[in-house]
Design a protein around this nucleic acid. Structure first.
Lengths: 130, 130, 130, 130
DNA sequence: GTGGTCTAGACCACC
DNA sequence: GTGGTCTAGACCACG
């Protein structure tokens, strides 16, 4: 499988978002171990330091904790914390601008739904088993 | 009036988007001159070079054309070009990720509309006359 | 008729080149009056000062001279002066870079001739009577 | 080695053309990294911003792509893209005027070839190994 | 180490 | 008055 980066965002940010998505989607449950830095680095052909930086961000967000010698694990309550924090951030920071753009471009709900559906298919390769 | 920058995006990008919005909203019509680099720089208390960079981006996007010694002017067809290009870009690049987030956070259309409405009020100060 | 400016070069330069071309082509003979500043400005929808600047350049090049109250006239020997000076300038300044580009792009004499022929047709509107 | 600027064109434009030439000549192959902004700036004794401007132009031309923290790299297909684009641009924009001048000055192919040959010798210092 | 953004200030060409 | 180019120097984010 080939991994693609949208270069608009730093890689470590994209890695962080990826993990967050996995938690929200229930792919990673509380108590589960995160995939090891080395593995991720190898699979995504990225510098291990970059992965580490992403993971450490998650620690300061209190979403995961590290057990020395064992690895990093999803914290209890991580999912709820995320649901609260991310909703807030999304609704106040991201959504307003997106909504303005939608209106400005005169996009109909129909077009939006169609576009969303089309792109969803390309991203469910790794998601099948939950 | 006070101008605020959301520091996530570079200023010149925000300036560019501002002009694009004015064209899409019909505030700037085709053939109209853009506010001069110096004026914008003074009003927004920004370095002229930064404004220039934004404007030159618009030139390479063929939205704007410069007449030597006179200033920069909105090109014919700029609005249509924008409507086509920006819709395309938005639907394929920005929207899919936003839609995924919405679904992941379990946000309802109701919440979205409410949030959009709340933030719209803060931005219609200067827009009254068309 | 519509006049178009290639904005890569300043207008006054293009005006100057236009007159030079007319002299070289024999459209303007020695002793002939140059079209009046006012007329040119009106026809080309350009600021008269811009035309004046072009004409004054020709004076310092000793190609034309001004007779107060009468206008500006092509000097004796202007054509020969041009043939010498322009050839020299063209062969040392312009041509070497053009030749390099031609070689780099692998353009054949055939393609060049065809392209030249195609564009010649668009410019002989004003040239018919000599 | 001493680097000279022909002051008729802005430096950043000359830098851009230099890179384009290197791609066309095969000195820079697809996937190769461009010399770093800082290095070029130092070597040519130019402000880094100027080099950056040249490079960013290449990015918007899609000839080059930047990898965060690593540098800028020649895109796949850059050479072909150039061959198509530059030929087109040259034949329609530059060549017609040059051809007109040649004809006007009554220059013979012989004179042109001689002039081209003379200037070629001054520029093949660094090109030997491919 | 890489590129990216911004500032302050100078100078130029053009209209 | 307009935009355009360049410099010098600072600071930042990224890998």
């Amino acid at each position: 499988m080939n991994h693609e980066w949208h270069n608009s965002q730093p890689i470590y940010r994209q890695l962080r978002d990826r993990v967050v998505a996995m938690i929200l989607d229930g792919v990673l449950k509380e108590g589960d171990p995160l995939p090891s830095v080395r593995n991720v680095a190898a699979e995504y052909r990225v510098n291990p330091l970059t992965v580490l930086k992403a993971y450490q961000g998650l620690v300061t967000e209190q979403l995961v904790e590290t057990k020395r010698g064992l690895g990093m694990f999803v914290n209890d309550g991580a999912r709820n914390l995320l649901l609260k924090g991310e909703r807030q951030k999304f609704l106040t920071e991201q959504w307003p601008r997106v909504a303005a753009t939608i209106q400005r471009l005169g996009l109909t709900p129909d077009e939006l739904l169609k576009a969303a559906a089309k792109h969803r298919s390309s991203s469910n390769t790794a998601k099948k088993e939950h």
